[in-house]
Amino acid sequence: MISVENLSKTFSNHTIFKNLNLKIATGDILAIIGPSGSGKSTLLRCLNLLEFPETGKVVIGDQHYEAGHISRQEIVKIRQESTMVFQQFNLFRQKTAWQNVAESLVVVKHVNKQQAKQRALAELAKVGLSEYANFYPGQLSGGQKQRVAIARSLATDSKILLLDEPTSALDSELVGEVLATLRQVVADHPDYTVVLVSHELEFVKQVATKVVFFEDGQILETGTAEEVLEHPQHERTQQFLSRFTQQQLAHS
């Protein structure tokens, strides 16, 4: 489970969010939607301490921290509690697909190299990239890179998956393959807690068990996917969804 209490974060005097509270139950798939720059990704990055909040408490899986009182060892432990898929894939470009997946197994979990390779190949097979195991990231398409990144996350065995706009950097024709992979991941791991920041509202509707609408560092609306996306109560949610639908229509 994830619990966020009174979390505040500023970037050079600009408040991203203040006294934010959020609870995500184990096995929930929470989608955070909202306009760009509203602090969605920053919230996600505060959960695994890629960003350090100024105040507040966070419980993530079996670990917890209080802002401002975190030792270096605690940071590493908290980060190991979850795993993240990034917008820009962030693959290690000097390592092949299987080496990318095996890296955390070898370095963090001290699994022997041969076993790590077997596990990496198995994870790559799950995302349909067996034949690409020896390819370097530079040889893969955006969609394939993101699928390698998903396999890399799954290999950590962390049961908390943080997905930071996993399809935003992809051409529209490549989005489908990544969403299909994610759909499969979610179906295969019902015990995983997933926090998803995404603009893919159709996908959110299909997989999310809970949706929050986030704007200017505040949660304006929370509910099931149907409640928030089909029958939004807050005026800003309605405006956002209507504008978003218009943009989608114009785009198509």
Partner: peptide
């Protein structure tokens, strides 16, 4: 981005 990915995997500095 690669350093962040490594951090998120729980690697030490």
């Amino acid at each position: 981005g690669e350093i962040e990915a490594a951090e998120s995997l729980g690697m030490t500095n």
